[in-house]
Design a protein around this nucleic acid. Structure first.
Lengths: 137, 137
DNA sequence: TATGCACCTTACAGCAACTATAGGGTCAAG
DNA sequence: CTTGACCCTATAGTTGCTGTAAGGTGCATA
């Protein structure tokens, strides 16, 4: 093992993920296949650490792997316009806003249902009643 | 087809879902297998409409199918205590709160990244920079 | 030298909760 | 009697991994 290369476990620790995930990224082409040691171990260099780090940061921000793929393609061309990247980020922001609004509405509804229940038997439970479709139409 | 039964398509429309989903629910035991017509069509009665309606309402509120299964079991016993149901609902509420908080934090971070970018080339893009792991350690 | 242990290898199955596709059969209307 | 909307089964694909089985490697310790 050369002094610059690390095993899959070390790379996983460095990026806050697992060897299984890294192998899976390699299989779907998100990470290039690295060199191998005499004993067939994968050997990663700093460029892998950087690329995997970027992938994981994007995933933690909720980007789909497809979006990350596009982002990685764009960043390959340093002279390119960053408008595409901004657009992807803005799409994700809009998606987040939609999701937050949806969940907040659900939260309100569920909270109302819980508050309306005073305990007792299932037959009397206002949550069950609220969930039953007949009570809606 | 008796006057009280409807086909899978009608049931799907009534519950705001699709025939494929209903068949899938039947396969995993969420919905009982209904009677069949002479031509082997599934024939559903009002009890199926009620049960599927409840399932879909719960799913729309973000309950897992597993939680819905438990809910359905509990509601079978009308004299039982509704505490279990309240507990499931409260769990879901807590989960929603966590999720909303997470997404709100992500939204803030992403929004900051977008604001920091003034356009130009990829090399200068602050979003790319913010996503790169080197800028974090 | 042996042996244990942590780590690595591949291949494949499974998770949630559906959705889509292929290749057919049924039913009512025109 | 054909058209078109509907239904049937079986199987594969989706996203992003995670878990399992069955084995090989590398290093420290007895």
């Amino acid at each position: 093992m050369s002094d610059q290369s690390i095993t899959i476990g070390a790379l996983a620790r460095a990026a806050g993920t697992t060897p299984a995930t890294i192998r899976w990224y390699e299989g779907i082409g998100m990470l290039p296949a690295p060199a191998r040691s005499a004993g067939n171990y994968r050997l990663y260099g700093p460029e892998h650490v950087a690329r995997l780090g970027l992938i994981r940061r994007c995933r933690d921000l909720g980007f789909s792997l497809d979006a990350v793929r596009t982002l990685l393609n764009r960043t390959e061309n340093e002279e390119g316009d960053c408008a595409d990247i901004t657009a992807i980020a803005r799409d994700r922001l809009a998606e987040l806003d939609r999701k937050i609004a949806d969940l907040t509405a659900l939260r309100r509804e569920l909270s109302r249902m819980i508050d309306s229940c005073a305990g007792g038997t299932i037959a009397a439970c206002r949550i069950v009643e609220a969930l039953s479709p007949v009570s809606r139409s």
